[in-house]
């Protein structure tokens, strides 16, 4: 959730974007399928997934993208805007099964992270660039990416 507004003048290259924690579950996969319209059974059907060479049902790449978008939009606040965003689905992630109707079973927790790589003023826009990624429970970066955001200047 967007909290305190971040300003261009306060951003330091090399600093970190506040980490966002996520748990991929089979339930989130189904919610995401309905909300996004991606009904590929690879993301919720064990038997189908077994024919796809992925080693089981895998988390939607676009769901991990949406986590990274949240990482960025939480950080930039209500007055920030995303100008560019990119990510690659390099490594597969496997959702936790559900323990109860609402609680995930034991397993991995994913961390969405970012570091600020550059800041510049271009055509009157105060731009900040960052590297972003999703880290799995073993510390592997399965979904690396980058973003360019426009921040309010906050004075000079």
């Amino acid at each position: 959730m967007a909290k305190k507004q971040v300003y261009y003048k306060d951003v330091e290259v090399g600093s970190e974007v506040p980490t966002l924690e996520k748990i991929s579950t089979t339930q989130m996969a189904v919610r995401w399928a309905g909300a996004s319209g991606d009904f590929n059974p690879l993301h919720y059907d064990d038997d189908f997934a077994a024919t796809q060479g992925t080693g089981g049902i895998i988390t939607h790449g676009a769901l991990k993208r949406a986590w990274l978008v949240q990482l960025v939009t939480d950080w930039i606040g209500a007055k920030g805007r995303v100008k560019k965003f990119a990510c690659q689905y390099r490594g597969m992630d496997y959702p936790r099964k559900m323990a109860t109707m609402g609680e995930p079973g034991e397993g991995e927790t994913w961390l969405c992270k970012g570091t600020i790589t550059n800041k510049k003023v271009e055509d009157g826009e105060h731009l900040v660039e960052c590297d972003i990624w999703v880290e799995n429970g073993k510390g592997g970066k399965t979904t690396p990416g980058s973003a360019t955001v426009i921040l309010p200047s906050g004075g000079s």
């Binding site: 967007a2 996520k22 989130m28 919610r31 995401w32 909300a35 949406a66 949240q70």
Partner: peptide, 16 residues
Amino acid sequence: GAIRRYADAVDDDNPL
């Protein structure tokens, strides 16, 4: 409704 459902699917409660 579609925007809210999409944000909810990710547990994204951004008021915007």
